[in-house]
């Protein structure tokens, strides 16, 4: 991945707004995409309290966009998807639920008229792969749950929406340790910068789904991975939904579910270490399309995909000589 862009260079990502009916309310949803119009749609769901900018390096990876029509959107109340003008949304706390979340994703896929899309979501979007496999296995060609688990307790934290706390910074840096130290500092910091852009209460409201409403521990058999293949892909440094949690979920789901561990990366793989993540996800996408004939390995390492680790934190902080 090059960081040396030339003045005048234009990225091929295009943005637009699509109206979607979610629970009887019309929402103006911001969508970015890149890739051939007739390519397999790869629908990308951002993490809690964040927005579609997390996917910018997938959206600009030519090897991916040659084949896939990569589409990333902002959920309502996130990024550039402003709240619906027909609702008095300021009179209530924003709260995300499993039903509302799953219905939102399907409504956006419907509004974009996507045929057999692959769904790829991260964190709360990763967990949602289970609800989608439970409720909407016919709507998707395959599901990729990044940082996905049956249950992810303990992050519905009151301080993340408290007037005595600088939630702009805290909503970001409460997630700092979710990333692996091997990522390039510019990417780690950009991930935090994206977190700093969330509206009041939205991150915490999303975490209601993430840490409270989402609980598949006793109903993994309801996830229809035999109809809609499910890939659970978790980073080694993800302390909320560990690679072990991913394996447990895949085993509980059974046929059609595959768990893969990504070494040297954490809970925001696509934005914390884009070069490494893109290399990893190409392996997974090849398994989804059938291009890859052998089974995915239990673990993917940087060496497997020909990526060198970046210098770890303290080395990076060595003063310039």
């Amino acid at each position: 991945m090059s960081s040396a862009h030339q003045p005048g260079e234009v990225e091929p990502i295009t943005g637009k707004y699509v109206y979607a009916d979610i629970g009887g309310v019309t929402h103006r949803v911001y969508v970015e995409e890149n890739g051939p119009e007739n390519g397999t749609p790869l629908l990308c769901q951002h993490t809690a309290g964040n927005n579609c900018q997390e996917w910018r390096h997938v959206l600009t990876d030519e090897e991916i966009t040659d084949e896939f029509r990569v589409i990333a959107y902002d959920l309502p109340y996130h990024g550039k998807s402003v709240p619906p003008t027909t609702q008095e949304w300021w009179t209530e706390d924003y709260t995300m639920t499993a039903r509302k979340f799953a219905d939102s994703v399907v409504a956006i896929a419907d509004a974009l008229d996507l045929e057999d899309p692959i769904y790829m979501g991260c964190s709360m979007g990763g967990n949602l792969a289970l609800e989608l496999g439970d409720w909407y296995p016919d709507r998707f060609q395959a599901l990729i749950g990044l940082e996905c688990s049956a249950y992810s307790p303990g992050f519905y934290i009151d301080w993340l929406d408290h007037p005595h706390v600088n939630t702009t910074e805290v909503n970001a840096y409460s997630c700092w340790g979710l990333m692996a130290p091997q990522g390039p500092e510019s990417a780690l910091r950009e991930t935090m910068y994206l977190y700093e852009q969330g509206a009041t209460g939205v991150f915490k409201g999303d975490l209601y789904y993430y840490s409270v409403d989402h609980d598949y521990r006793d109903k993994l058999d309801q996830v229809n991975a035999d109809e809609c293949p499910l890939f659970i892909v978790n980073g080694e440094y993800d302390y909320l939904t560990t690679p072990e949690d991913g394996r447990t979920a895949a085993e509980g789901i059974g046929e059609g579910a595959t768990a893969v561990e990504m070494k040297g990366i954490g809970h925001f793989p696509m934005s914390e270490n884009p070069e490494l993540f893109n290399a990893y996800i190409k392996e997974v996408l090849a398994a989804v399309t059938g291009e890859r004939e052998e089974d995915l390995p239990d673990e993917l390492t940087p060496e497997d995909v020909g990526i060198e680790y970046h210098p770890p934190g303290p080395t990076r902080e060595k003063p310039a000589e």
């Binding site: 210098p311 934190g313 303290p314 080395t315």
Partner: peptide, 22 residues
């Protein structure tokens, strides 16, 4: 939580100090 980043950064500097800043 009111001092989260400053506190977290202060702890993180234990690693920088321990490794002589690399």
């Amino acid at each position: 939580f009111q001092n989260l980043r400053a506190f977290q950064r202060t702890l993180e500097l234990m690693r920088v100090a321990h490794n002589n800043g690399g």
